[in-house]
Write a protein that binds this DNA or RNA. Structure first.
Lengths: 213, 213
DNA sequence: CGAAGAATTGAGGTTAATCAACGAGGGTGG
DNA sequence: CCACCCTCGTTGATTAACCTCAATTCTTCG
């Protein structure tokens, strides 16, 4: 387990303890014995796997309410790392498994995750580079809290991941991701000047490019 | 729901009813309202999604003991079709959700599935064509019932899927899959003459080609 | 035996990866 | 405060992997 977990733990027995992490630190390492199940209170967490030669695949980017650290055997099969500042609730594994209300909460979340993984498999197996990036941006838009505004017009999103992280999420190289962004910009699908992650997106133009609709 | 389900149903109340399907028929269609949860007794089931333009991605091939037809909302998000002759147990959704023992069985299976989907995402996002096919064959070997024999030597496996189905599973074209098989054959990793799916595989030579170890 | 579906193989094209250079922004230390 | 460095992003040139199109063979089944 990480250093941060030990330091930041605030006991709150029976409910789970609060834990905080700074951006881009490892929360769970692959192969580690599974002691806790985590629930995201605020922030984002990336779940990934590393091949022995260094290739990485990120398969999920989780937000508030999501659960991670669940495994079939007693050992974590993937890496979890913070993308932003993160606040988590950590539940002791054995304890959590005996609570039926908790179990059904976990089961519900797993169903949502499986759904998302199915969609991501389609993206990885069957979509072109531009389709992948377009799908990614649409995902960002749909994940926003203020989901109300402008369902079909233009919206502003903040891209928190680096080009390299997006590449590892979409099964591309960072250069290809960058080129796809540039093309979408040229085509008037999205607009940005500074490299601060903020971009204005035309949903109407974006949606047809995702391959899904 | 499919025609077969209605015809073949054999009531066995409280436990779930038995249902049989011939090979390569649709068990669940995408978008269909979710009424039942299925458990495989014998045979194999493929879970896939179709893009509007016809591109298909198969993300799981399930065997005995596996569960499918579980969704977060009340609607199926993917297609389930039989690969072989299949015998299933169908559980009424509402009923199943009220049984806590059933819920925890489902949860356990979902965890295993998520694990498999993670591995498959790595394959789709980061592996070469030959690595994908090698991984696929290794998967077949590990899924066999008679898993005892020859842990490191040569084994015989039966490839049930067509090249086209394998391609849709591995995110490739059927030609690329065929070429990968041919290459593995040339390199002495596997051997076969007839196109009946039976092949002799050297696990020792196969494993290093999967990219995972 | 003929037809249809599946697998193989070849030739050529396209997409994305690789290799490489450069610019912008942010932080650190002199 | 400024120079430097480092990371991140962008873009160009080239290469490699995989896809597409096409022809041929194998297998099964009526």
């Amino acid at each position: 387990m990480s250093q941060y977990l030990e330091k930041a733990g605030v006991e709150s027995p029976g409910v789970g303890r609060m834990v905080d992490f700074p951006p881009r630190v490892t929360i769970i390492d692959e192969g580690e014995p599974a002691r806790s199940i985590f629930r995201i209170v605020t922030g984002n967490v990336m779940i990934s796997k590393l091949l022995p030669d260094g290739r990485r695949q990120i398969f999920e980017v989780l937000g508030p309410g999501s659960i991670f650290g669940v495994t079939p055997n007693g050992r974590h099969d993937s890496v979890a790392e913070s993308l932003t500042d993160v606040r988590l609730t950590a539940f002791e594994k054995g304890l959590a498994e005996r609570s039926s209300s908790f179990t059904s909460l976990v089961a519900d979340r797993l169903k949502v995750q499986i759904c998302a993984l199915h969609g991501h498999a389609v993206l990885l197996g069957r979509k072109s580079a531009v389709e992948r990036v377009a799908s990614y941006i649409l995902e960002l838009i749909e994940a926003r809290e203020d989901t109300a505004l402008a369902p079909e017009g233009s919206v502003t999103v903040r891209v928190l991941m680096t080009r390299s992280e997006i590449a590892d999420y979409l099964g591309l190289t960072l250069e290809t991701v960058s080129r796809a962004f540039s093309q979408l910009k040229r085509d008037g699908v999205l607009a940005y000047e500074r490299h601060d992650g903020l971009m204005r997106v035309s949903i109407r133009r974006l949606r047809p490019l995702t391959g899904t609709y």
